[in-house]
């Protein structure tokens, strides 16, 4: 059996979890074994209505009330205990922050190897995976051993694909043996939302600034364009290292991964560690003085020129467009 560890929000599986279900479904088909899923927290049972479209035959729900809120070691204990009991060939989780953390705990607890951020899985002996290194700038082909193969799936390695046919899903609640020790990390339940601004993760347009913006003040023109387009401002690591912008704006290997409709890279050279953070954008527009900068050849559109000159002209034209009375 293949076991998919899914994350959910009040029973609705996250996008990455749907990708995991899709990959796990393909794998179970290839291995000719059933597909089962596990969701943690009492509300996990509501996921049955969705996993039915992904070929899941059984949904295990770790329904102890203490597992309702995120508790990394407690969640891992539940997944590990279930794994020992139902004995799957493979357990796949998401490579989200939480998925990665829980699967690492599962692996540590079960004393098994874990392959993180896999993009391809070839079952058999040897069991071969392709996994991301350097944030996805490089791939590794590896052999994974262990009586149960534990892995996490890299975000967007494939697209989630629901099947038109539905399976009969049997829901199996279970109560793992929990220990106070599993709750030594106390999460303060309330999450502070970032106020007001459109978040980098959600924005349809992201205007990214690099060293070529010239200064912290130079970002004013990017902020203005973000305001005009209803987008968000991001930046490169060169910029956060210089202290021009907070690290929460950084796009790339050690920053955010974004997937807007349009990414406007202003004065950014296009280093691979930056590109892994923005290559999921539908379109990239580069603004750079150097026509030979790597960003230019990786972009869909480019303007060769000074960031400030280009943006002041663009911003002025959009303002003018807005002034013209409609009709």
């Amino acid at each position: 059996m293949v076991l998919a560890f899914i994350e959910h929000l009040n029973g609705a599986p996250t996008t990455l979890s749907l990708e995991v279900l899709t990959m796990a479904g393909r794998l179970s088909g290839e291995m000719a074994v059933p597909l089962e899923a596990v969701a943690i927290g009492p509300k996990g049972a509501a996921a049955a209505g969705i996993v039915t479209s992904y070929g899941v035959s059984r949904l295990h729900v770790g329904d102890d009330p203490r597992l309702a809120d995120y508790a990394p070691a407690g969640w891992a204990r539940a997944v590990a205990e279930l794994t020992e009991r139902v004995n799957p060939e493979v357990v796949i989780g998401t490579a989200s922050d939480r998925g990665s953390e829980v699967m690492a705990h599962v692996a540590a607890r079960m004393k098994l190897p874990l392959a993180a951020n896999c993009t391809e899985i070839a079952p058999g002996d040897p069991f071969t995976v392709t996994r991301q290194r350097w944030g996805g700038s490089l791939l590794e082909e590896a052999h994974l051993k262990g009586r149960v193969k534990l892995l996490t799936l890299a975000p967007h390695a494939l697209a989630a694909e629901a099947s038109p046919s539905r399976t009969e899903v049997a829901t199996h609640p279970f109560t793992p043996a929990l220990d106070d020790k599993d709750f030594r990390v106390r999460l303060v339940p309330q999450v502070e939302a970032d106020t007001g601004k459109i978040s980098l993760a959600q924005a349809r347009v992201v205007i990214g600034g690099g060293r070529g913006v010239g200064s912290a003040e130079g970002f004013a023109s990017l902020e203005e364009l973000a305001g005009l387009l209803g987008g968000a401002v991001g930046c490169s690591r060169a910029v956060t290292s210089l202290g021009w912008r907070p690290h929460s704006d950084q796009v790339g290997q050690t920053g955010m991964r974004i997937a807007p409709d349009l990414y406007i890279a202003c004065g950014i050279s296009g280093a691979i560690q930056h590109m892994v953070g923005c290559r999921a954008a539908k379109h990239i527009l580069a603004i750079n003085t150097d026509a030979a900068a790597p960003i230019v050849e990786q972009a869909d559109y480019a303007v060769i020129g000074d960031v400030q000159k280009v943006l002041s002209s663009v911003n002025a034209q959009i303002r003018k467009l807005r002034e013209v009375p409609v009709g």
Partner: peptide
């Protein structure tokens, strides 16, 4: 890659791209 232009001269093409998208 489609080069939209140079410096400020590209402003109109950029705005047109925003409209196209």
């Amino acid at each position: 890659v489609e080069i939209l232009g140079k410096n400020g001269d590209a402003g109109a093409q950029v705005v047109e791209l925003f409209q196209r998208l």
